[in-house]
Amino acid sequence: MPTGYTPIFQIFKDKENITGRFQDRTTSIRVDSTSGNGDQNTCAITLDDRDWRIARPKVGDYLEIHLGYEEVGLAYMGTFEIDEVVFEGWPKQISIHGNSQGNNSLLKTQQIKAFDGKTVGEILKEIGGKAGLDVDVDAELGGIKIPYRNMVTSPSHLINQLEMLMGGVATINNGKLSFTKQDGGTSASGINIPIVVLTADHLAKFRVKHSNKTDYGKTRASYRDPETGIRKWVEAATGVAALPDAAQSAIETMFTIGREFASKEEAERASKSQMAALDRGLGEGECDLVYGDPWIMGQQRLLIAGTRDGVDGSYVVDTAIHVYQKQGGLKSHLTFQPPMDGGEAYQRMFREATENNDLSGFLIPEPGEVTGGVIQRLPDGRIRGGA
Score class of each variant (00 low, 15 high):
E252M: 11
A250D: 14
K13E: 11
R377I: 01
A267S: 09
N192E: 15
N192M: 07
I127F: 03
I230A: 15
V240T: 04
Q93D: 01
G342R: 01
Q111A: 15
E235W: 02
M166W: 05
P244A: 13
A250N: 14
Y223E: 07
S271L: 05
L198H: 02
K13P: 03
P294M: 09
L359W: 02
Y148I: 08
D245S: 12
R301W: 08
E81P: 03
Q23E: 14
S332H: 01
E227S: 12
G184Y: 08
I195N: 00
S360Y: 10
E235N: 10
G184W: 02
P155I: 03
E369D: 08
K181N: 10
A320R: 00
A236S: 13
F261Q: 03
G102Q: 00
W52T: 07
P294T: 10
Y148C: 04
L282R: 15
A387V: 13
S154R: 09
T199G: 15
A270W: 04
D312V: 07
Q101F: 07
R280M: 15
Y315Q: 03
D312C: 09
D83V: 01
L330N: 00
L334D: 03
G283M: 04
G361D: 09
R269C: 00
L124W: 07
K181G: 04
G381T: 05
T214M: 09
K130N: 12
T27M: 08
D49M: 08
I65V: 14
I321Y: 03
R56Q: 12
T42W: 08
I304F: 14
Q300E: 02
L106Q: 06
L330P: 01
N173K: 14
L363W: 07
K218F: 02
Q299E: 14
L158N: 00
A246K: 13
V31G: 00
D136K: 15
L378A: 12
A345W: 04
Q40R: 05
P365E: 00
A262V: 07
G36T: 02
D201I: 04
Q161C: 08
R280H: 07
N357H: 14
A277H: 05
D293W: 06
L203A: 09
E252F: 12
T46G: 04
N17W: 10
K181I: 08
R149H: 11
G328L: 06
T238S: 15
W295Q: 04
I123H: 01
G386F: 04
L133A: 00
S178M: 03
T335I: 03
A242E: 14
I159C: 01
H333N: 08
F336W: 08
K213Q: 13
G38T: 04
S35I: 02
R259P: 02
Q299S: 15
K58N: 11
A250K: 15
I383T: 11
T253P: 02
K232S: 10
A270S: 06
E286W: 06
T19I: 04
I11G: 00
S332C: 06
Q40N: 13
T371R: 12
G368Y: 00
M297I: 11
I193T: 12
I8T: 10
Q347C: 04
G313S: 07
T256D: 10
T42R: 12
P155R: 03
V137K: 05
K331S: 15
R382K: 15
H66P: 02
D309K: 13
W233V: 05
G386T: 14
I172A: 05
V152D: 06
G185E: 07
T253V: 09
M1L: 06
R384M: 11
D24L: 13
